[in-house]
Design a protein around this nucleic acid. Sequence first.
DNA 1: TTCAGATGAGACATTTTTGTTTCATATGAA
DNA 2: TTCATATGAAACAAAAATGTCTCATCTGAA
Lengths: 174, 174
Amino acid sequence: MLLRAAAEFLGRRPNATQDEIAEAVGVSRATLHRQFAGRRALMEAVDALAVREMRSVLAGARLDEGTATEALRRLVVATQPVSPFLALLYSQSQEFDTDEIDGDWAEIDEALVAVFRRGQAAGEFRSDLSPAWLSDALYCLVAGAAWSIKVGRSAVRDYPDMIFSLIVGGVRRP
Amino acid sequence: MLLRAAAEFLGRRPNATQDEIAEAVGVSRATLHRQFAGRRALMEAVDALAVREMRSVLAGARLDEGTATEALRRLVVATQPVSPFLALLYSQSQEFDTDEIDGDWAEIDEALVAVFRRGQAAGEFRSDLSPAWLSDALYCLVAGAAWSIKVGRSAVRDYPDMIFSLIVGGVRRP
DNA sequence: TTCAGATGAGACATTTTTGTTTCATATGAA
DNA sequence: TTCATATGAAACAAAAATGTCTCATCTGAA
């Protein structure tokens, strides 16, 4: 779909012009503008798509089943396809402040926070790091892993372990 | 200094216009343009400043002294003042491809990678995660912590522990 | 085949951003 | 004070990006 391609391209070139986006996506600028009237509209559509995908990811990860560690593992695995999205929105989040979108992301964020909180309550996770920060950290590790893979510093197949192993066990030798 | 203020502002508004930057910095656009002829020149100056600061950070952290874990701790602490810089460059790195700058960052990156490699060789760190990824992960945790603090989700005083505890020990309860 | 709808290509105006210049004014050193 | 220098303000041109429109062409369904 057109929107997906645009989102993928914007992940690499966040400041691309409409011309560049249209060319990268393979349509004329006229068509791009017909479907998304302006950059703002496009970014909002990308954001809305990311929200839908992320909701689907959360649903698929079944975060309330099993241990928090297992849920976290499923979550990380499920984020792989949408990681480039998140990386994009991460870098552009400063620009947009639409309220309903903020609400959507707050809801998604709450689901992540809840996993960490559950893990702490169950004694699986340490409690000296706030769930909010752990959620942010997971988010930026997802974006960072996507970036590391994109530039060729890491392999695609390592994605789940890169994130999961690090955030769960850290770098210290067990 | 003017450059520092501009860099700080660009950390919050990466796509700001020259007008906005000048206003935020407190000078006229004419003056801004006299000192940095164009956006590209400004960004390169910001980048060069970040490189200098980062080199100073690395020197201060004495990465080859003590255990790798201790070195990592010193490194994290030392990055705090420059973390907003890194977050900015992280989001803008896709745009610029000046070779000498890439060389500088490659050199800095090598220093980070070396710490993790040393820790692995000494048996302090696990070896199933590549030093390159660990370096990327540290980088994006630094940027993520800066962001988390900026938006008020985390406290400034927690900065070192947020990053160090997580990357060393992970979220699993010891 | 015919036709409605979508697309591509291009032209054009508008807006935004940037680059450049001029000049009055402020600032600080000699 | 006097003078060199830097700055702010404003105007202007140039460039870049965007919004809009037209029209030929393509495509798929009836």
